[in-house]
Simulated assay, not measured.
Amino acid sequence: MIAPSRQQVSAGSRAEADQLLNAVVEELQLLARQDGTCGILVTKTGPGQFTVELSDDVPFGITEERIG
């Protein structure tokens, strides 16, 4: 099964957020390697809320963080 190129993460604590974000970023790194053109964008959308996605705006091999 292929992971979606965009995932929502909700966490109740900083430790949980770190764990979930790391897992999602690892999944998307595998997808990014297959394509070879996109990087990963992590956007904080609210307290404990994040969107993690493959992005053409981020160079391949880079994970960038933003606050939305």
Results as ranks from 00 to 15, higher is better:
1 M>S: 14
2 I>M: 11
3 A>M: 12
3 A>D: 11
4 P>V: 01
5 S>I: 08
5 S>R: 10
6 R>C: 09
6 R>H: 13
7 Q>H: 00
7 Q>T: 01
9 V>A: 08
10 S>T: 15
12 G>E: 11
13 S>W: 00
14 R>Y: 11
15 A>V: 12
16 E>L: 05
16 E>M: 06
16 E>F: 03
18 D>R: 13
19 Q>V: 03
20 L>Q: 15
22 N>C: 06
22 N>A: 14
23 A>C: 01
24 V>P: 03
26 E>P: 00
26 E>L: 11
27 E>K: 14
27 E>S: 12
27 E>F: 00
27 E>W: 01
28 L>S: 06
29 Q>R: 14
31 L>F: 09
32 A>R: 08
32 A>M: 10
33 R>C: 00
33 R>A: 11
34 Q>H: 09
34 Q>C: 04
35 D>T: 11
36 G>V: 01
37 T>L: 09
38 C>F: 08
38 C>I: 00
39 G>H: 02
40 I>T: 07
40 I>V: 11
42 V>H: 01
44 K>L: 07
45 T>K: 11
46 G>W: 12
46 G>P: 12
47 P>C: 01
47 P>T: 10
48 G>D: 09
48 G>H: 08
48 G>I: 09
49 Q>S: 13
51 T>Y: 01
52 V>H: 05
52 V>S: 01
53 E>V: 02
53 E>W: 05
54 L>Q: 08
55 S>P: 09
56 D>F: 05
